Amino acid sequence: MKTVAQLMKLKPHQEVFTISPDQMVLDALKQMAEKNVGALPVVENGAVVGVVSERDYARKMILAGRSSVGTPVRAIMSAPVITVGPGENIETCMNTMTDSHLRHLPVVEDGQLVGLLSIGDLVKEAIAEQANLIQQLEQYIRGE
């Protein structure tokens, strides 16, 4: 099974978009819309302190009747943040995301954010690995 580092190299867009905890929720929403992403790691002084997602917005802003203009990201971000290192394998990440009900998992190395994995990234890789295994088994059965 591949490691996080190997999977991140396969991603077409490796840039990670972030936001400060003191920026307004409206800024986060604009950035997510511009970049076509569903979540942003929240970074303060170079460290990941949380994640803000569309789900956080829906549950902590809309349902609470709060204003996106005057509310800082810090007020709705999910924290403390669960992270993984580049050496972790995909199965471990999937288990972490499932057990913790996460859709996004920041990748941190030496205290610095180096990537962000989504559940979609992991599912896509798991499907590709299963397809490869099936192909190998079929070749083995045929004696190739």
Score class of each variant (00 low, 15 high):
Gly143Thr: 08
Asp99His: 11
Asn95His: 12
Ser53Ala: 08
Cys93Lys: 00
Ala5Asp: 15
Asp27Gln: 12
His13Cys: 03
Ala79Leu: 01
Val114Asn: 10
Gln130Tyr: 13
Lys30Glu: 08
Ala28Asp: 04
Glu129Gln: 15
Pro86Asp: 11
Gly85Tyr: 12
Glu129Leu: 13
Leu7Phe: 06
Met97Asn: 02
Gly38Pro: 10
Gly50Phe: 02
Val4Pro: 02
Leu113Cys: 07
Gln136Thr: 10
Gly65Asn: 09
Thr98Ser: 15
Asp121Tyr: 03
Val52Asp: 09
Ala5Ser: 15
Met97Arg: 03
His13Val: 10
Val84Gln: 07
Pro72Asn: 11
Val4Phe: 08
Met97Tyr: 05
Tyr57His: 08
Glu44Ile: 00
Arg55Val: 06
Pro106Phe: 02
Met24Tyr: 05
Gly143Pro: 08
Pro86Arg: 11
Glu144His: 09
Gly111Asn: 04
Gln136Tyr: 05
Ser100Ala: 14
Lys11Asn: 06
Lys124His: 13
Glu34Pro: 00
Ala33Met: 09
Ser53Arg: 00
Asn95Glu: 12
Thr92Ile: 09
Thr71Pro: 02
Leu122Arg: 01
Glu34Phe: 07
Arg59Gln: 14
Leu10His: 04
Leu29Cys: 13
Glu138Asn: 11
Gly85Trp: 12
Leu29Pro: 01
Glu125Lys: 14
Tyr140Cys: 01
Ala79Thr: 13
Asn132Tyr: 11
Leu117Thr: 07
Val37Ser: 07
Val69Met: 11
Val51Arg: 01
Glu91Gly: 02
Leu137Ser: 12
Gln31Pro: 00
Gln31Cys: 02
Ser53Gly: 07
Val16Pro: 02
Asn95Val: 03
Ala131Trp: 06
Thr83Cys: 11
Arg66Met: 10
Glu144Tyr: 07
Val49Phe: 07
Phe17Met: 04
Gln139Trp: 05
Gln112Met: 08
Val84Met: 09
Lys124Thr: 12
Asp99Gly: 10
Leu102Val: 09
Leu137Tyr: 11
Ile119Ser: 14
Pro21Ala: 11
Ile141Val: 15
Ala33Tyr: 06
Glu109Gly: 00
Lys35His: 12
Ala47Gly: 00
Asp110Gln: 12
Thr3Tyr: 12
Glu91Tyr: 09
Ser100Lys: 14
Ala47Tyr: 07
Gly143Val: 07
Leu105Asp: 03
Leu117Glu: 08
Pro106Lys: 02
Asp27Cys: 01
Ser68Pro: 13
Pro106Arg: 02
Ala126Phe: 10
Ala47Arg: 15
Pro86Gly: 13
Lys30Asn: 09
Ile62Met: 11
Val16Gln: 08
Arg103Gln: 13
Ala28Tyr: 06
Glu34Ile: 06
Val16Asp: 09
Ile90Phe: 01
Leu116Asp: 04
Val107Glu: 07
Val37Gly: 03
Pro21Cys: 12
Glu54Lys: 10
Ala126Trp: 08
Ala126Val: 04
Ala58Gln: 10
Arg103Trp: 09
Gly85Thr: 15
Leu63Met: 13
Gly115Met: 01
Arg55His: 10
Thr83Val: 14
Val123Trp: 03
Ile62Glu: 10
Asn95Lys: 14
Leu105Glu: 06
Ile90Leu: 15
Ala28Cys: 04
Leu10Tyr: 02
Asn36Glu: 14
Leu113Met: 04
Leu116His: 00
Ala79Cys: 05
Ala126Ile: 03
Thr96Gly: 01
Pro80Arg: 04
Ser53Asp: 04
Thr3Asp: 13
Arg66Pro: 00
